[in-house]
Design a protein around this nucleic acid. Sequence first.
DNA 1: GTGGTCTAGACCACA
DNA 2: GTGGTCTAGACCACA
Lengths: 149, 149, 149, 149
Amino acid sequence: MFFSIDPNNGVAIYEQIVRQVTFAVAEGTLCPGQLLPSVRQLGQQLAINPNTIARAYQQLQADQVIETLRGRGLAVCAGATERCRKVRRSLIAQRLRSVLTEALHGGLKAEEIEQIVGQQLHSLAGSVPTIGSAPEDVASDDAVAMAGE
Amino acid sequence: MFFSIDPNNGVAIYEQIVRQVTFAVAEGTLCPGQLLPSVRQLGQQLAINPNTIARAYQQLQADQVIETLRGRGLAVCAGATERCRKVRRSLIAQRLRSVLTEALHGGLKAEEIEQIVGQQLHSLAGSVPTIGSAPEDVASDDAVAMAGE
Amino acid sequence: MFFSIDPNNGVAIYEQIVRQVTFAVAEGTLCPGQLLPSVRQLGQQLAINPNTIARAYQQLQADQVIETLRGRGLAVCAGATERCRKVRRSLIAQRLRSVLTEALHGGLKAEEIEQIVGQQLHSLAGSVPTIGSAPEDVASDDAVAMAGE
Amino acid sequence: MFFSIDPNNGVAIYEQIVRQVTFAVAEGTLCPGQLLPSVRQLGQQLAINPNTIARAYQQLQADQVIETLRGRGLAVCAGATERCRKVRRSLIAQRLRSVLTEALHGGLKAEEIEQIVGQQLHSLAGSVPTIGSAPEDVASDDAVAMAGE
DNA sequence: GTGGTCTAGACCACA
DNA sequence: GTGGTCTAGACCACA
């Protein structure tokens, strides 16, 4: 499990961790029953205060993505994979809609936007380590939510 | 000039104003020499504290998008249109890249992402009154979210 | 709004605050739209660190009991009264069941327990300031649980 | 002697063990002189770390419920039955009063609470293996407290 | 003034 | 060793 945290991108650090864990579970990089890195360990690895990690883990517990095994650590919940897949799609769709709205609102034309998207997907596709992503349920948009903003 | 501010989308309010003014200039809704609404007036219109508006205007001055006309208010700078066009594309591209990176990183496949983008552009294209915009988010995608940006 | 916090009763302080706010909303002592005491103010009043208050308020936000009014404070959500009534009953029923189970399990007879309950209700009824409690929905047991004990 | 431990009910595990042993002695399931299961044995039976069992046994010794028989293990003290009866009633009464106070404080009416108690006693009475409970001394409330929650 | 986030460091229950 | 909770103090955006 790798994290890439950017403390200055406007998204709270704990939130970035929540999203990345959620995505890792959705993708199968983290499987039900598997232990997460400990609060202290991950804090050290990311050079982030353990309390911040703990806060992310707290939210992931509220989201029923992970659960505590007393004295042993935090493990991915049973059934979390499915839940995280839905949440992942919802989170991405939400951010996308926000950007697309701004772009259209700002006067960019749909074709132009699609072109930018296409370009970026191509240039990113190579560099992003797309670990054999499990097949996705393309069905409903933004089905569920683990916790409201 | 219409603004649509979402206090809960993670982007600071003053930043949203900066972006929307920039986009309006890029688009030609606001032309060089044209006066902006006063801090108080806009504050009242958006039901936002004037301090927040003032802060946005400060940054727009620093960005050389607007300038003070002594005793008359703030007006769009000469040459701002061109500058804002570049900035607009850059701002959008930047946000897009950020979302796309997260999506790919999170295991979504490029095709899937393009599909979501296509869907959303279609559903938004109708509702977003490009130029002289007004009503916002019509579609009901993304019911809830676990954690918004 | 009065709080009575016992730092040593085994229930986390922030949890006690969450419960008491929830109950106050259920009871109508706190009404939708009403502002809560500020984090710093309540912290001082209870001689508790403001961060602990903030944590309670965070959970109450996740529970959709309160919401932030940017820069102004935290206010009770619309619709929270109904929600809190259900939660209140559920929280009490949950604790009661836990005690009753222990009592029966430990060999006390049902009659004996009911007698103790009756005695205590009588002796407590006088001292507890039961502010005209709104009528209760006696429907389903343990409907929801916003916050487990 | 059977234990039912709930790791998530807010009461520390060692505390649950202390209470259940106390209750078993009160009830006569455990009699003076009788040996308790060893730390290791009980730890294995409950899938709990032996350290936790040991801590519970330590407290039971401090409470004069059990004592070490050199080389043979831990046995119920003489006179413990009587003592545990009082403690049992006190512990239950204490927890009950705590819940009832919260309930009244939270605006539930006495009738409503008694109704919930009645319902739950009926539904639990069947499932809880009430081992021939010894007659109880219904005298004083909250006589002693060996171990606070 | 308000809440939101983060750091640093402490103590507890449990393994 | 593990997570959970709490304190103390800082900086930020917003009113």
